[in-house]
Amino acid sequence: MKKQTMLLLLGCLMISGCATRVVERLDTAETVDLSTRWNDTDSRVVASEMVKEALARPWVDQFQQKKGKPPMVIIGTVLNKTHDHIPTETFTKDLERELFNSGRVTFVASKSERDEIREERADQQENASKDTVNQNRNETGANYMLKGVINSFEEQVDKKSYKYFQVTLEMIDMEKNTKVWFGDKKIKKLMTKKKFGF
């Protein structure tokens, strides 16, 4: 009895002496899954794979042959229809980066970026010198818009939690309103919670 009590007291003291914080730096490419929620790896992997798929379709080459220049793309909205907050801006930036790095398309600034630039240009009309002022009504229009939806489905039974994401993206011809590419990517995650004593 005495031994057990002493062991317990010692154990308590040992535990109390062990609590420290350790911060580790990780490779940003490393996958860290702490829950079934959407994370940076999902964003990066889905963007990379879907952009590869989109560029493998004939619409890019067809445009290049017809116009003699790469198509101009604008990233539209990726609508989050899941039940969780997802930083969709991070995802659209991942898409933009992948498309840009491919070297096969060029970009125009997004709506929110354009608004800021227009405000600055309006200021230039008033305050900048004639040599440096940028002219209004000289913007480049995009040929295609990339937009999409993220959907999810989830289920929890006992200690298991299952989540399914479906990302659907489409490239739309802005002149004809036709869809030149349509792709989707699915992610399934299963988390099993283990219970520890004490």
């Binding site: 003291l13 040992m14 535990i15 062990c18």
Partner: peptide, 13 residues
């Protein structure tokens, strides 16, 4: 919160 184990241990004493 990150020191919750400490809490458990000390609260017995």
């Amino acid at each position: 919160y990150t020191e919750s184990l400490t809490k458990h241990g000390l609260s017995l004493l």
